[in-house]
Every structure is written in structure tokens, then in C-alpha cells.
């Protein structure tokens, strides 16, 4: 009976996404794929790094997303002088009614459920690492006291690909902790027109359509979505294709890649493919799901070598090349 209920709940995931997107699209124009990927990230208990030039609506998207999910939203604007305590929170001396003084913990913005870490690369590595620890452990430790973050918890960090001066690019090890790296691209002509209309008219208020509890229920199902063994093999071959020393790696990888994706990359690839299958209304993972998730889940895990950097090679192209040269039936 429980099984039946769970499988019925799986059908709801697709409907939930549809309603979330409908709600978000009241404020955000287009970006369906991006919203799906964000939702996928949330279902997989992951975090996303969003990259895009200023003014493309990153903040608006994240805020709308949290509003539609009925999750607590908080924003941290990263600056070079931002301290870890500004993120996590700090113990402050507080006088009680009896006149006694004691330390009381004041929660920082990390205690939100959807945390927007805006321009994460502008803060110092020390501050960045404080955030990343919270992302990984889902808790913070202040003066030896653990504080659990409320689930569902998700960090959406943004970074600007231009204006690299005065920034602290995230170390590879830290970038690896993001499930997806998403790129926001310029809207097309029709979308621009729509953006113009929506932003200059009376703002519409979003209402929450999916609760945090429902999201937690969805999360439990994701891990049980069936993946056939040959699809797992395919995912492994794709990840192996990112390794420059691999015997099956395509020429482009060997030429331009210094380090390929880690096993964590493989885990996130299969996990996100499972979520993506449910979002498509299927109860099994397909090749298409794996291919769809390959770029956002692997693009930030591939580190180019000097030649690749010098020639301005895009990791997306490398992944596309790997997908193109990896047969389904290995």
C-alpha cells in the first residue's frame, strides 16, 4: 500500500513542476529548462552555481523560485569584506530579564531554505569556504555548537563571468560541491518583448504551490527511480570520456583537458538523470535523461589545460564531443 502511494506520488512530481513553472513564469520569461534544472537540483539535494552576465534575471529567478515553493528565502551579497560570521551568524551577549548576561546565537542568512549567494566569487576564500561547509554538511558550527539547517536547503550561488578583477574564483574542489552549473543566456527578441511588458506593468505576486514537505517526499523517491545497468555503464563511459588519460577518451579531451570529472560527478549525473526522468513523467531513466544532465552536471568538473584555456575552449563543447563519440551500446 505504501509502495502504491509512493509511486502515485511520483506522478505528482511532474504536475508539481508544471505548477511551479506556471507560477514562476508570471515574473520570469522563458527559462523553462533552467527552472527544470533548478527543481531537479532541489530534488537531488544539491546546490546550483548560476553564471550569467548582470541583468539577466538571476536574482529574480531565484527569488521567484523560492516564493513558488513556499520556502524561506535569504540573500547574501558577497563582497570582499564579507566575513564568515556574516553568513553563518554569531553569538552575541544578551542581557536577560534577571539582568544576567549570556551568549545567544543570532542566525545568519545561511539559515534560509533557498539561499542566494550573489556574486560568490567576490568574497574571500575564507568566507566562501564557510558557505561551502554549510552546503555540504547542512549544518553550521559556532563556538562548538552545531546548528542544523532546515530542510529542504538549497544554495543558489551566482557569479559573473566578466569583471574578474578583484574576484576570488572558486577553487575546483569547492566548485565540485555544486550539483549543477547553470548558464543563463540572453533572451531572444520575443522574450525581450515579454520581459518589457511584464516588468513595466503592475508586479504580480506569486503564491506558493508546492510545500517544503512535499519536496522532502519527492526526494525520498528520487533514489529509487530504476536505472538499467546498461545506462549506468553509459554514464560511466561519459565520465571516463572526460579523463584525458582514459583509453576511450576522445581526442578533444586528451588535447584540452587537464582534469576530468570525479566520481562525485558520476553520482550527480545519475542522480540528476533519475530526477529528470520523473520530471518527464517516466519511471525509468533513459539515455536522453543522462545526456540532458551531462552538461550541467559535468561542465564545472572539467578543468582545462593551458592549451584549452589559451584557445578559449568551452567545456560544454568538450562534453558535447564526448557525448557524440560515446556509443550507447558500448
Amino acid at each position: 500500500m505504501k509502495k502504491e502511494m509512493e509511486s502515485e506520488q511520483a506522478v505528482e512530481i511532474r504536475e508539481s513542476f508544471a505548477s511551479i513553472y506556471n507560477e514562476i513564469s508570471k515574473k520570469v520569461v522563458g527559462q523553462e529548462e533552467l527552472v527544470r534544472q533548478l527543481f531537479c537540483c532541489l530534488l537531488c539535494e544539491g546546490h546550483a552555481l548560476i553564471e550569467g552576465v548582470p541583468g539577466l534575471g538571476k536574482t529574480l529567478l531565484v527569488k521567484s523560485f523560492s516564493e513558488a515553493l513556499d520556502l524561506r528565502y535569504s540573500r547574501i551579497q558577497f563582497t570582499p569584506d564579507l566575513m564568515p560570521a556574516d553568513i553563518i551568524g554569531t553569538n552575541m551577549v544578551r542581557e536577560d530579564e534577571t539582568g544576567g548576561r549570556r551568549f545567544e546565537f543570532f542566525k545568519g542568512p545561511i539559515f534560509g531554505q533557498v539561499v542566494l549567494a550573489d556574486e560568490i566569487n567576490r568574497a574571500t576564500p575564507k568566507t566562501q569556504s564557510a558557505l561551502l561547509e554549510a552546503m555540504q554538511e547542512k549544518r553550521v558550527t559556532v563556538f562548538g555548537e552545531n546548528h542544523i539547517l532546515q530542510e529542504p536547503f538549497m544554495v543558489l550561488a551566482t557569479q559573473n563571468p566578466i569583471e574578474m578583477e578583484g574576484t576570488y574564483p572558486l577553487p575546483e574542489a569547492q566548485v565540485d560541491r555544486f550539483l549543477f552549473k547553470l548558464i543563463i543566456r540572453y533572451p531572444d527578441h520575443r522574450q525581450l518583448l515579454e520581459i518589457l511588458d511584464k516588468s513595466t506593468e503592475a508586479p504580480s505576486n506569486l503564491k506558493p504551490v508546492v510545500s517544503g514537505d512535499l519536496i522532502l517526499g519527492f526526494r525520498n523517491m528520487i533514489r529509487q527511480v530504476p536505472v538499467a545497468s546498461y545506462l549506468k555503464e553509459y554514464a560511466i563511459r561519459l565520465v571516463e570520456g572526460t579523463h584525458p588519460q582514459g583509453s576511450s577518451s576522445p581526442g578533444m579531451t586528451a588535447e584540452y583537458v587537464r582534469y576530468g570529472a570525479s566520481p562525485r560527478g558520476l553520482q550527480t549525473l545519475v542522480m540528476s538523470a533519475r530526477a529528470m526522468a520523473l520530471l518527464q513523467g517516466r519511471f525509468n531513466v533513459s539515455y536522453e535523461d543522462i545526456r540532458e544532465c551531462a552538461i550541467p552536471s559535468l561542465r564545472h568538473r572539467i578543468i582545462l589545460n593551458l592549451k584549452g584555456e589559451a584557445e578559449g575552449i568551452n567545456t560544454d563543447d568538450i562534453i558535447k564531443n564526448i557525448i557524440g563519440s560515446t556509443p550507447e551500446n558500448g
Binding site: 529509487q224 530504476p226 538499467a228 546498461y230 525509468n284 531513466v285
Partner: peptide, 24 residues
């Protein structure tokens, strides 16, 4: 979209989705 292949593999495995998967 790999429905048949996965169903065949999961005929002998325990999964909450098996029934739905085979039905699909």
C-alpha cells in the same frame, strides 16, 4: 526511452516503481 529494457531488468528487482514501470 528504455522503458522495455529497464522493465526487463527490474522484473527480478525490488523497486517501488516496478509495477508502474512495467505498466508503462
Amino acid at each position: 526511452q528504455e522503458r522495455l529494457g529497464t522493465s526487463y531488468e527490474y522484473l527480478k528487482k525490488e523497486s517501488i516503481f516496478r509495477e508502474k514501470l512495467v505498466e508503462d
